[in-house]
Simulated assay, not measured.
Amino acid sequence: MTTYISKEISAELDAARIAGLKKTSRLRVEFGDNTFKILRLWKDGFTVEAETTPQLRGLVDIYDGARHLYQCLIIADEEEAGEMRYEFKRSTAAADTAPLDFYRPPDAPIALLGYED
């Protein structure tokens, strides 16, 4: 026995699945001045809605709400079931502070307090 689903029903199922992913995802990708919702994110890439998102390429920033997670260099992989998949060529975790160029011991004082007579 074979299962056959018409193209119209398949498109409606994909649209419902994508709408559910968009509703639950807080992740977004920024490309220039534009922001697009990320449907799924994994170690090597992410997906966005293919219908409403233009072709992305190059350096992008990934956010979870207002928190900057990664700065990534991406390439387009393939479109499948209404989702466009992108792969990371490079993914760098964003940090709140500048990196130190020296070793800081774990027991180092945070600040030096002055003493006046």
Rank of each mutant, 00 (worst) to 15 (best):
T97F: 13
L113C: 00
V60D: 01
K22A: 04
M84Y: 14
K23W: 02
A66L: 10
R104S: 06
F88L: 12
R40C: 02
T52E: 11
D117E: 11
Y4P: 02
E80F: 14
T47F: 03
G58K: 14
A11C: 01
E116F: 12
P99N: 00
I75D: 05
V48K: 03
D96S: 13
I38H: 02
A15K: 15
A11V: 00
R67S: 07
E78G: 03
K37P: 04
E80S: 10
Y70W: 15
A66H: 08
Y4V: 11
I5G: 01
M1Y: 09
L100D: 06
F46W: 09
I62N: 06
D64N: 12
D101E: 11
P54I: 12
D44M: 11
L13I: 13
D107Q: 12
E30T: 10
Q71F: 07
V48G: 05
A66M: 05
E116G: 00
Y103Q: 10
E30W: 04
E12G: 01
P99H: 01
T97I: 11
T24W: 03
K43M: 05
C72H: 05
T35Y: 08
R85Q: 10
S10N: 15
T92I: 13
T97K: 14
P105K: 12
R85G: 04
I74Q: 08
V29S: 02
I62D: 01
A81M: 14
G65E: 09
S6P: 14
T35K: 10
D14C: 15
A11L: 05
L39N: 09
